[in-house]
Amino acid sequence: MTIPAVILDNVVKRFPLTKALDGVNLAIDPGKVVGLLGHNGSGKTTMLKIIAGLRRPTSGRVEVFGMTPGVETKKRVAFLSEVNTYYDWMTVDGLLNFVKSFHPDLCLEKAAELKEFMKLKGAAKIGALSKGQQARLKLVVGLSRQADLMLLDEPLAGIDPPSRAKILHALVGELRQEGQTVIISTHEVKEAEPIFDHVVFLREGRNVLEGDAETLRAETGHSMEELFGEVLE
């Protein structure tokens, strides 16, 4: 039996005024492309941050490749935040070299290709990049690595609509490592729909519907976009 990439067992995350996660149970098999679908404030970011080891659950059990999130799991995980979290004063190449010191799996040749694809200059200061360029930059950083688990929080935010489909397909297609598990959070389901193996619908901190995308299509006769509307409205 293979160890699941991610296990969440009755995970609760309480904030002073809200419950971001309210008892999430989830097991994700390695190699899957998972869509974490929900509106803003449904707990998507909190869930990804808990998996990334940046936040701790109030209660419940979290396992990433069979381990509690920590230094060991961080070696195998790439977390790409929705907003820019990189140092403004670094250059694009400076950042890539910095990340490479921690993740030997980062391939500079691939990074060069990706920079070209994303139209980013290596000498550019991160603070001087536009929002859209910063959104592309994190994809360059994440995809240059061969992380076993990639966590993408709203990767389409800040990417212009014409490029979205292209980037999404590159993401799960030619750019993805063999066997890499990918979790993508989004509230824009239409564009991302065909790339998911597995979908998790999150509403008010609970996964209200979850399953294999194809099975859900066969069972309900609905697209994920339609289900998103039905389950989450």
Binding site: V33, H169, G173, E174, P194, I195, F196, D197, E214
Partner: peptide
């Protein structure tokens, strides 16, 4: 699988299936 996945613009896992 990769070629089909790119043509139809879906996840290679789906094509593999």
């Amino acid at each position: 699988i990769r070629e089909v996945a790119e043509g139809v613009r879906v996840n290679p896992n789906t094509v593999a299936r």
